[in-house]
Design a protein around this nucleic acid. Structure first.
Lengths: 153, 153
DNA sequence: CTGCCTGCAAACTCTTTGCACGAAT
DNA sequence: ATTCGTGCAAAGAGTTTGCAGGCAG
């Protein structure tokens, strides 16, 4: 279940930015909030069309950066060609992404030390950290030995 | 200055994999080793052609994964659409990438704590870490106030 | 000789953009 | 009424691939 306040937050964000609250943008937001795992632009298009079939691919691509900037979505790029997105939970905690090299699933793990790492590393360069991402590639030994990953599906 | 042993390491790697040692592959390696900072596939093509003008774009793209797998290059994806590469130094130490949001430059900083953190985070999922990347976006306050970044150029 | 490697160009994937119509304010 | 937002389709960037000929082993 998506929190109803996210919807309101988005409307406020749009208005403050001088952007319009359209049916398409709200349908795309609704589709995004309904997802619990990571999704691609294409998957989001499908789900948004189920809510409002007038939504086009272009509008999805135009809306994704808006939702990201508005703090409703996090962009996750695992270097696979396409970008993934995920709704941001209420808390603004730091998370690391763990990508399973066997099933390509993306896990998110709370990583409270990350902002300290970011500051440590940035300060060596005299820079001020804006954001940080820890991405771990890991293999599933169970899948490699038994051919079955408990997390599949 | 590129270490002469890297050239040999690559030849051994190719042979062990049953791949052939071609002029094009060696020219591409040479061009890659000559670079000290991050480069794109397109830039590598230019430099490789200066060594052997028969090198094609396709061969560069076919050779990049081979050099990466052979441990000669590290792939760096900052989520900007194109991938960057960088020769791996002799030591296999862990590094974090710091991307300056003002000048888009990529810095690499030694981050020995990273592998520990990769293990910690993976083990929570019962996975074995293969690799980890810490990527920090940071802004240059000096550039923002004085309009001049000491690292530009 | 044999079969991997190559260059070329076309194809591909994901994303962005120009345009005229349509809808939010 | 205005002006921004939209869908459509074409364009764009980066990368991959099919094919016929070329070169390493």
């Amino acid at each position: 279940m998506s929190s109803p306040s996210a919807r309101e937050r988005f409307k406020v964000f749009l208005t403050q930015k001088g952007l319009r609250v359209t049916n398409q943008r709200m349908a795309i937001l609704e589709a995004a909030l309904a997802r619990t795992d990571h999704f691609t632009a294409e998957q989001l298009l499908d789900h948004a069309r189920a809510i409002d079939d007038s939504v086009s691919r272009a509008t999805v691509y135009r809306t994704l950066p808006i939702m990201t900037e508005g703090g409703l979505l996090r962009e996750v790029d695992i270097g696979s060609g396409e970008k993934f997105y995920r709704p941001i939970a209420d808390n603004n905690s730091q998370v690391a992404q763990v990508v399973c090299t066997d099933c390509d699933k993306i896990f998110e793990i709370s990583a409270p030390f990350m902002s300290w790492y970011g500051s440590t590393v940035s300060s060596k360069l005299g820079l001020t950290p804006v954001s940080q991402r820890l991405q771990v590639s890991a293999q599933c030994d169970r899948f490699r030995t038994t051919g079955d990953c408990p997390r599949h599906g």
